[in-house]
């Protein structure tokens, strides 16, 4: 148990330390005055806070909605609707994230909330698709034997279908995280803030240190999130 917890925490902790070291180093060793003004603890913290909010709020929302809608669509009565939605989702995924953000900008205007909403919608897609696919791909003989033994619809869903679909749902969530990381750095274009602010301003004033710091921290955030989700999966799925 302790060993397990240690494994779960040690890697993210190490990554966080790496991030902190990067920040301390760049803040204390700016290459010039412009960089010094951009890379202050205050600025980095604000960007971190915004970035985390962007990702976490949109991801949590997307997981809740994506899983619930995926479950709904997997019910036999909605199966064909689900198949249709699956196709729409697959097409939706091919739209570049920048285009999505632009679309939302023209529709809802600027700001943090719009960015969160856009990220949320964009991240739903893989989660919804995988939840639907995961549940409908559970071997029908397994569901039937559960039904034949007297489990009701809800028990079959919670005891059989969701646990068996879990690895596929997790894979969807991980895909969503990857997408979300990329898209979150673009949120700056519609005033969403986050590490994208550092990267974009760094680009416009051509200061590599600012760009690398912003990009590095964004990447670290993504890696930590993905690692934690992966560890959760490992701990839950013991049967393969």
């Amino acid at each position: 148990m302790l060993q397990n917890l240690y494994k779960l925490i040690i890697v993210p902790l190490f990554l966080i330390i790496v991030g902190v070291v990067i920040v301390i180093y760049t803040v204390n060793n700016p290459t010039d005055g412009l960089v010094a003004r951009m890379l202050t603890y205050d600025n980095v913290l604000t960007a971190l806070q915004q970035h985390l909010m962007l990702m976490l709020v949109s991801m949590i929302g997307a997981i809740i909605v994506g899983v619930l809608v995926g479950i709904m669509l997997s019910r036999p009565s909605l199966y064909y609707v689900g198949r249709g939605v699956e196709n729409v989702v697959n097409v939706g995924q091919t739209i570049p994230s920048l285009a999505i953000l632009a679309l939302f900008f023209t529709w809802l205007g600027l700001g943090f909330r719009v960015a969160v909403f856009a990220l949320f919608l964009y991240s739903i897609l893989p989660i919804l698709r995988n939840t639907f696919a995961g549940i409908t791909s559970v071997d029908s003989s397994i569901v039937e034997s559960a039904k034949g033994m007297g489990l009701n619809q809800f028990r079959i869903l919670t005891r059989i279908e969701l646990p068996l679909a879990f690895p596929i749902i997790i894979a969807g969530i991980r895909t969503a995280i990857v997408i979300n990381v990329g898209a979150a750095t673009l949120a700056t274009f519609i005033g969403g803030g986050g590490f994208g602010d550092l990267i974009v301003t760094g680009l416009s004033v051509r200061r590599d240190m600012v760009i690398v710091t912003g990009a590095g921290l964004a990447a670290l955030t993504a890696i930590i999130l993905d690692y934690v989700i992966g560890q959760i999966e490992l701990r839950v799925v013991k049967w393969t």
Partner: peptide
Amino acid sequence: IKLRLDIGYVIQEIGLFPHMTIEENVATV
């Protein structure tokens, strides 16, 4: 549901729950 809880059911595909241990499988009902 009540009817099925009192009827043992074995199918050709067996339909064991792969995510449950043997003891959990047997303890289903």
